[in-house]
C-alpha cells in the first residue's frame, strides 16, 4: 500500500462529521460514517479495482475458450456446467462462478480482508483512526461489513461480466437445468441472482478469518499471504477422503453447493449447511478478531 494512496483515502475520514454524544443515535450514525469511509477506502484503492477487473476478465476468457472449442467432443470433463454453456449463454455465469469460487474470489477477498487492519497498522494510520471517538468494536464491524460488500461486488462483477460475455458469444434462451427440466430466460435470471447472492455469502466466513489474521500482525502483506495461504491449505485438506470426519467443518466444503439451485425443485440442504457453516465461522473468527483488536496495544 502506498502512502499517497492511504492519505488520499484518509481525507474523507478525517472530515467525517463528529459523532453526537447521545448513545443510541450516535452509535448508529457513527457506525454509518465509519462504514462509508471504509467502503471508500476499499473501493477507491487501485488494487481493489485491478482485482475486480481481473474478475471481470475471467468469464470473458472462459467464454472465448469454450467458444473456440465448441465442436470438440467433451465427455463430462472440465469445469462444472461447461457442457451447458455452449447451448446457453446464461450458463457461462455458473461456469465462471464455479471456476472463480475455488481460487480467484477467495484470493481477492483474502487480499481485502487481510489488509483491512494490518494494512492500516503498517501504514501508521491505525492510531489516527482510533483517535476518532468511534471505538474499536465499531471500527472492526465497519471493516467486516465493507469486506462483505466487497464479496458481493466481486461476485456481481463475475456474474454481470459472464452474462454479457455469454450473451455475445452464445445464444440466450430457454435454460436447461441440471435436472433436465427447461425453464424460460425470465425465470433463469432470478436464479442467477440467487446463485450470486449465495456465492457472496459463502465467502463471509473467509472475511472473518481474514480480519482475524489481519489483527494479529502489523504487516499487510503478511496478513494477505497468510489468509490466501490458509484458503489454499484448507481446500487441499478438503480434497482428502481420509479426512472425512473433519471435512464437513472446513469452510470451503460446501462452496460448490450453489449448483443445487439449478435443479427443479431447488435442493437446499447443502446450501443451508454452507450458510450455517459460514455463520459459525463468522461468529468464531469475528469474536476472535474482536478480542484481539480491542485488547491489543496499537503503537503504529
Amino acid at each position: 500500500m502506498s502512502r499517497a494512496d492511504v492519505s488520499r483515502a484518509e481525507v474523507p475520514r478525517a472530515a467525517a462529521p463528529p459523532v453526537p454524544a447521545g448513545r443510541g443515535r450516535g452509535t448508529a450514525s457513527g457506525y454509518l460514517a465509519l462504514f462509508r469511509n471504509e467502503l471508500r477506502l476499499v473501493f477507491r484503492r487501485l488494487r481493489t479495482r485491478v482485482l475486480l477487473g481481473i474478475l471481470a476478465l475471467l468469464p470473458v476468457l472462459i467464454g472465448v475458450v469454450v467458444k473456440l472449442n465448441t465442436d470438440s467432443p467433451h465427455d463430462g470433463r472440465g469445469p462444472s456446467f461447461i457442457a451447458q454453456t455452449t447451448q446457453n449463454g446464461v450458463f457461462l455465469i455458473f461456469t465462471a462462478l464455479a471456476v472463480a469460487l475455488p481460487v480467484f474470489l477467495p484470493m481477492t477477498v483474502g487480499v481485502v480482508a487481510g489488509d483491512a487492519v494490518a494494512g492500516e497498522s503498517a501504514a501508521g494510520t491505525l492510531r489516527y483512526l482510533l483517535v476518532a471517538p468511534a471505538g474499536r468494536t465499531r471500527l472492526l464491524a465497519a471493516k467486516f461489513t465493507a469486506g462483505l460488500v466487497f464479496c458481493l461486488a466481486g461476485t456481481v462483477v463475475v456474474t454481470l461480466s459472464a452474462l454479457a460475455a455469454g450473451a455475445v458469444l452464445f445464444p440466450l434462451g430457454d435454460v436447461t437445468l441440471i435436472s433436465g427440466d427447461t425453464i424460460g430466460l425470465v425465470d433463469a435470471l432470478p436464479r442467477a441472482a440467487l446463485v450470486a447472492a449465495v456465492v457472496a455469502l459463502s465467502l463471509s466466513g473467509l472475511v472473518a478469518i481474514g480480519l482475524f489474521v489481519s489483527t494479529l500482525t502489523g504487516s499487510g502483506i503478511a496478513a494477505m499471504a497468510a489468509t490466501v495461504g490458509l484458503v489454499i491449505t484448507v481446500q487441499i485438506l478438503d480434497g482428502f477422503p481420509q479426512l472425512d470426519a473433519i471435512r464437513p467443518f472446513l469452510f470451503p466444503h460446501y462452496w460448490m453447493s450453489f449448483g443445487d439451485l439449478l435443479r427443479a425443485p431447488m435442493y437446499w440442504d447443502n446450501i443451508l449447511k454452507d450458510l450455517g457453516l459460514q455463520a459459525a465461522y463468522v461468529a468464531v473468527f469475528g469474536s476472535a478478531a474482536w478480542a484481539r483488536f480491542t485488547s491489543r496495544d496499537i503503537s503504529a
Partner: peptide
C-alpha cells in the same frame, strides 16, 4: 464520552 459510554470497545 462516546468511548466511555461504549466501554467494552476499550
Amino acid at each position: 464520552t462516546a468511548v466511555a459510554a461504549d466501554a467494552e470497545s476499550g
